[in-house]
Simulated assay, not measured.
Amino acid sequence: MTYVTGVAAGTRINVRMQLGERELKKQPPGTWPGPVLAWGPGGDASAQVPRYELFVEDVKRDKRTQDRDWRHLTLWGDPHRQAWVMVIDTESAESGTAVYRVLGSQGELLARVTRRRGSIFRFARTSWRVEVSGGPVLLGRKGHLAGWFLWWLFSPVWAVMLVLIPLGGEFPRMPLTTRWGCDGQEVMHFDEGSYRAVSGWPDARLVHAVTMLHWAHPTVLGDWSRP
């Protein structure tokens, strides 16, 4: 496995969704069936940014006994699950607030991530708080205030669009971009279905964890939409 310790500005991270049975039949034997995190240079990134993949094992929650924000993710360095890079598990999840632990391959605590679910009734955006062990705190929020203001301003139009969906209309798209920053500086963001490191970061595992936790919370609009 090729694994880097740091993240270069401009690095692009994409997540390939889980393959269905039909797609798997067309793939070579031994193809990883679950999600794959693909890492490489973006359009404005240095050619020195390495390319590699991590293989994500996503344990589905028990809907009867676990909160809907419960998650358990393992990131493997190879498709044969010989060496794992990190584990993300749920410390607590209730009333729209979930806390996740990010553990390294030696069981060490890398970070604690808190996600607060947004609500259209409370006019609250989904927010993220990433507390790095022995390091700074990253804060993230979904969308911009201006974007949400315009979305609500035209909400009567969205209501009409909802009625037209059975006739071929599209679901009104709310602000989807999420940005994570530290001390006023943007570190990474999600937009148009992919993630990009805006500035350098010393530990790539943190970027992996933030990406996978965000990816693991799709909205009702579908897999392309993330909260």
Rank of each mutant, 00 (worst) to 15 (best):
A93C: 08
V220G: 14
L73V: 14
G20V: 11
R205M: 02
E91V: 00
V4Q: 09
R12E: 04
G193F: 01
V85P: 01
T2R: 12
V85W: 05
L73R: 10
C182S: 06
A197D: 11
A146V: 06
G200I: 04
T11E: 09
S225A: 12
P50Q: 08
V15W: 13
V198S: 11
G169F: 13
M161D: 05
T90Y: 00
W152V: 10
I88E: 01
I120R: 09
G40E: 05
Q106K: 08
D58S: 08
R173N: 15
G43H: 14
G118Q: 11
D89M: 04
G107M: 14
A9E: 01
R81K: 14
A204I: 11
D67I: 01
W201E: 05
S92F: 02
V59I: 07
P35M: 05
P29C: 11
Y195E: 05
L24V: 08
V87M: 04
Q27Y: 14
V15S: 03
T219I: 15
R64F: 13
A146E: 06
W152T: 09
R129P: 13
R125P: 06
V160F: 05
A197Q: 05
W158Y: 13
W151G: 04
R226H: 10
R226P: 01
V157A: 12
W215L: 08
R226E: 10
T11A: 10
R81W: 00
F190E: 03
F123Q: 08
R22A: 10
H208A: 10
S199T: 06
Q48C: 13
H217Y: 01
W39I: 09
W84F: 08
W39L: 14
E23I: 11
H214C: 10
S199F: 15
L153E: 10
P28K: 06
V4R: 02
Q66M: 07
P79T: 15
V220N: 00
V4A: 13
P218L: 12
R226M: 15
D67R: 02
F171G: 00
M212S: 03
G104V: 01
M212E: 12
G10L: 13
H72N: 06
R16H: 13
V207S: 09
R141Y: 12
G181H: 15
F55W: 02
G6Y: 07
